[in-house]
Design a protein around this nucleic acid. Structure first.
Lengths: 199, 199
DNA sequence: TAAAATACAAACCGAACGTTCAGTATAAAT
DNA sequence: ATTTATACTGAACGTTCGGTTTGTATTTTA
């Protein structure tokens, strides 16, 4: 790789990093290209040379995030045996990797700002569908192995995803880092065993 | 009431209605005052005469919504006896009154657009806290009456709220009106009885 | 009937923002 | 040494939007 290419790559990284920090702290809309210019020292034109657009830059960051997420989950997936362990591990992974991730809030904003933009909504649906399928597999396995009641694994996967999503939503608003993990754990427990008395 | 006051009130209503429809279809940010001008025939100045600002207009609509919601829930609350009935009734009420309400999506957008605006976030927190408290009461009563396992009712209320919020979020994206109510019902059932086999 | 308040219109303001583009510098290739 | 491709600059553009101001018609009040 050239000296020039190397330099180019570095500036791209620098821009991406600064942008991530800005998006995380100020949100997507409130972060202007000008802000990124000010933070990097790079010029406007250069940013547009490396990324197609503001949206393109943001998506680039989201992809990076997605890659890291999967990578890190794959690294510890094998640690969990039973369904309960897996779900607890999954919840913990979400708390540490999603909830605390700088871009979660900005992503929410980005999605709901792209209102009628069907492409953005579709991309989001893809993410969600992936999660549901992920949940479905864990639950189906649990049913096959007699840990869970036989039931519609897809619907339950949908509900589980909703539960995680909602808890994330709420925890973002009331950031009580210490309590959050406990609540997630409790939620998984409720999901598995319910709250009603066993008669 | 004057002839003039009456006329004035009618135009205010007309503006509010048009705005609600626009916000619902295009979202908060994407709806400009100009759009409302075009839809009503009223002038910009007149809209600002009736409402302090765009934000004020939107909040006015949210308040209207909140009033209606509480009114309608109060009207049917007494129909439900057991905790399970109450929760199922509550879920159903949410599906019919929140999920299908035109402003749900716009409200999400409004909230996440008001990034650093602590006043908006606080107002939202108030709503959420109300819901949690509402859930807590139902659950506590269920515990007192021996329907539910004795536990921390507030935490469970928090989790329940998260579950409802997440399901709402997801149902908005995949609008399958027929299936949605079923999923909510199932979710309440899971919340109460869990998915794991009783050993 | 004169004065004052109310309801509304239309033009205008200023600022912000994403994006473009003509041009420049620098390193690589010939 | 010259050409070419790549990386980068920064001023300018066009548009959008929330909000203000000034003026006017109509109705109420005195």
């Amino acid at each position: 790789m050239n000296k020039k290419q190397l330099q180019s790559e570095q500036t791209k990284k620098k821009v991406a990093e600064a942008a991530r920090s800005l998006f995380a702290h100020k949100g997507y809309t409130a972060t202007s290209i000008e802000d990124i210019v000010a933070a990097t020292g790079s010029s406007k034109g250069n940013i547009y040379y490396h990324f197609q657009s503001k949206e393109g830059l943001f998506k680039y960051l989201l992809d990076e995030w997605d890659r890291d997420w999967k990578e890190q989950w794959a690294a510890k997936e094998h640690l969990f045996q039973t369904t309960e362990e897996k779900l607890q591990g999954f919840a913990e992974h979400m708390v540490t990797n999603d909830l605390n991730h700088p871009l979660t809030k900005a992503m929410d904003e980005f999605i709901s700002s792209g209102w009628e933009r069907s492409d953005i909504q579709q991309e989001m649906s893809r993410y969600v569908a992936e999660h549901i399928e992920f949940n479905r597999q864990i639950l189906q396995q649990g049913m096959d192995e007699g840990e869970l009641n036989a039931d519609d694994a897809r619907t339950l996967g949908f509900i589980l995803e909703g539960l995680m999503m909602g808890l994330g939503e709420m925890s973002k608003r009331a950031p009580n880092a210490a309590a959050t993990l406990g609540i997630y754990r409790k939620a998984i427990q409720v999901f598995l065993h319910g709250t009603a008395l066993v008669r």
